[in-house]
Design a protein around this nucleic acid. Structure first.
Lengths: 299, 299
DNA sequence: ACATTCCATGAACAATAGTAATGGTTAAAT
DNA sequence: ATTTAACCATTACTATTGTTCATGGAATGT
């Protein structure tokens, strides 16, 4: 009953704000659109819009349909894209999403040689998710999720591809800079900079501070890795980052890494995929490639 | 480009096995189907089937499209259903999925009075999920997930609605039947019956046996609660169940409950919903209703 | 009050999708 | 080997649906 065109109409009227503009965007006349809408509403037996003055206001049913449209249409468009790629040989697109900020740095290193090795495959990288990376994976917005926090569930498989150590970053002149490792209490008089995510998802809290019932003097958040490191370099506080990333930054900035606890905090970057897409060639090759890359990089 | 009808064709040909039968199922002539397919393949620039003898064989692209069809069509059909319900007043359907076997018993008690209280709302209960309950929730196969194991994620909200204690069930004549509680070691010479799910998802292992590095003498699995209790009653082994459920069974069977550890293993049944559907009236009222129900039942 | 923008409508037309009839091919039944 | 039945493709024709054109009314801003 509800056809793809109906969904497109809903979406386009929302985007354009008016029926006339939507018609143009859909390569139709205003009249055609008006007719189609009237017919649809007759079929449904309920209006989708009410006329408020000279523009339209969605009814409750209309709002529902619009939400579904913005959810389903991208999936249908993806189907088109994939089919076009089937038709034009073995070209493909792998859509990769990331949840953690430093993952991006790692991904850059993997994607570049991957694109060279597989010229027929495109890579789409997405970072912003309305409902988080896992939802994006389930909703078929992305095909691979890069994350340090795998979740054990039937439908999703996580594959550890890159081991790294999470370390404390401090200014080179900081009192802690000389230590080989620190204890949780040593952060009690420090200002800690992190990305703006809830403490439950920050390893420094979950795996280091909370088990020892410690907490930093202050906890501040900043969006951007560079900004955080600026603050650390300026001795305004400390932060945590992957060790390999600190090494890189240390070449150009006065910062140093210190191990968290005697044994360190060890993590893996995981690649998560839907089990249903496990036999997709491009996804398979990407994961394999990523894992091999790390054998070289994971020194 | 790909239209709903195309997806229906793919699905129906799979279901019926032949083009002629599919045409009949779609209320079309065989000829019409043949035409539509030819046109679609021309548009795509690639065949979706190859003729193997007198029946059809899907190409790779065809297989992909078929998978997408069986994924997307149910969602489109749900949209139809909801819109029909909008048209016919405030009727609605809440689709509930369950991951844990005993959840079903609890749900039965909640659904019955709920249906009486809200005659306009239907409840669909589903128990089998190809990729697990969480995936079903993400895929819009269900609207509410009943589970004892919430997962913290952006897109999903879990709401604890019913507290219960997980206990050991033993035969009335079993040596352990007299104890007020048992220690993990006391299961070392017992046969343990559970549902056929992996030990990581069984509280008896995760919260009781593994922390004490114990394990039962034997671990057997059975599909069905009644069957498990039969085995327990016949002194073939022990099992774990929610305490309130054991109480019920104890009225008709020679079984008794024993606390797990000094403090017991305490759990909650959670209701999980997509954040995007948090303002759906029917879903809201169901959760509210479920929570109130438990105040009475949760003795 | 007037121009402008927006949406609705009816009639005419064009495009699309559907049917009927037929024929060729394949696989099973006699 | 021949017949029978099932399946799919094709052509020509028809019905339905979608689209445009031309027009009019209703709301907004100047």
């Amino acid at each position: 009953m509800i056809d793809r065109m109906h969904l497109r109409i809903l979406r386009e009227i929302e985007r354009q704000g008016s029926l006339t503009a939507a018609a143009k965007a859909l390569h139709l006349t205003q009249s055609a659109l008006s007719h189609t809408i009237k017919k649809l509403e007759a079929q449904l037996g309920a209006p989708l819009w009410t006329k408020e003055g000279r523009n339209l206001q969605l009814t409750q049913a209309g709002e529902y349909l619009q939400r579904e449209a913005s959810r389903l249409l991208p999936q249908l468009e993806r189907v088109d894209q994939v089919l076009r790629q089937y038709a034009s040989g073995d070209k493909g697109t792998v859509r990769i999403g990331m949840e953690c900020h430093p993952c991006y740095q790692w991904l850059l290193k993997v994607v570049e040689p991957y694109l060279k090795r597989w010229p027929g495959v495109d890579v789409d990288v997405k970072q912003q998710f309305q409902f988080g990376g896992l939802a994006a994976l389930f909703n078929h917005d992305i095909d691979i999720l890069v994350t340090p926090d795998p979740v054990l569930r039937d439908a999703i498989t996580f594959d550890p591809v890159f081991p790294y150590e999470q370390v404390l970053v401090v200014s080179k002149d900081h009192p802690l800079a000389g230590e080989t490792f620190i204890q949780p209490v040593q952060l009690a008089d420090q200002t800690l900079y992190t990305y703006p995510v809830s403490p439950e998802r920050l390893d420094i809290f979950q795996q280091f501070l909370l088990p020892a019932h410690c907490h930093p003097k202050r906890h501040k958040t900043l969006e951007d890795t560079d900004m955080i490191l600026q603050m650390v370099a300026a001795e305004r506080g400390v932060a945590t980052l992957p060790q390999w990333l600190v090494e890189e930054y240390a070449q150009t900035m006065p910062v140093a890494a210190v191990r968290l606890g005697k044994d360190g905090v060890h993590k893996h970057i995981h690649l998560g995929i839907r089990n249903a897409s496990a036999d997709d060639v491009h996804i398979q090759t990407f994961i394999e490639f990523a894992r091999q890359q790390d054998i070289n990089a994971g020194v």
